[in-house]
Amino acid sequence: MKVVFFFALAAVAFGAPQILNSADFVPILRDDRIQEDDGRYNFDVETGNGIVISQSGSPVSQGAIASAGQYSYTAPDGTEVVLKFVADENGFQPQSDLLPVAPQFPHPIPQFVLDQIATAQEQEAARARGETVDYE
């Protein structure tokens, strides 16, 4: 009976998933945290795989906290990713060269669009004069 129990226990131990695989282990190189009694905070973290995070914040009103910071890492394709941000009464405001940027407005209007607008205006003027408008 003891032998059966031992083998059953061994089977459960060897069959259990490995929670920490040494290949997945990333050491924390730096972890500096400051939390003040008035709600101000600051932290800086750096990991062995190149992730660096820095953030600080302070209360601004009725439980709201304004914070600012940045994080950086190297993407799998080798691109260095750096994102700086501010989060305050104006919302989350990220800044990075890698974020998409909307075209500046007013942007140039293509000629075919200007032509369509002119045609629509001519047709509207013709209708206002009571003329029959031929749509092409």
Rank of each mutant, 00 (worst) to 15 (best):
V4H: 06
F5H: 02
F5R: 03
F5N: 02
F6K: 01
F6Q: 00
F7L: 13
L9E: 01
A11Q: 00
A13Y: 06
A16L: 08
P17W: 08
P17G: 11
Q18R: 08
S22C: 06
S22V: 12
A23R: 07
F25E: 13
V26L: 05
P27Y: 10
P27F: 06
I28Y: 12
D31S: 13
R33I: 07
E36Q: 11
E36D: 06
D37E: 04
G39S: 07
N42M: 04
D44F: 15
D44E: 15
V45Q: 00
E46K: 11
G50S: 10
G50W: 09
V52M: 12
I53P: 05
S54Q: 11
G57E: 11
S58N: 08
P59N: 05
V60E: 07
V60P: 06
S61K: 11
Q62D: 12
I65T: 15
A68C: 06
Y71C: 10
Y71D: 08
S72I: 09
S72A: 13
A75H: 09
D77T: 05
T79L: 10
E80W: 00
V81Y: 14
L83Q: 05
K84Y: 01
F85Y: 15
Q95E: 08
D97R: 06
D97P: 15
D97T: 09
L98S: 08
L99Y: 12
P100M: 05
P100L: 04
A102V: 03
Q104M: 13
Q104E: 15
F105W: 13
P106W: 06
H107W: 04
H107R: 01
P108H: 09
D115R: 02
D115W: 04
Q116P: 03
I117P: 05
T119L: 10
T119E: 11
A120R: 05
E122W: 08
Q123V: 14
E124D: 06
A126H: 02
R127T: 04
A128C: 10
R129P: 09
G130I: 12
G130F: 11
D134P: 07
Y135Q: 10
E136N: 09
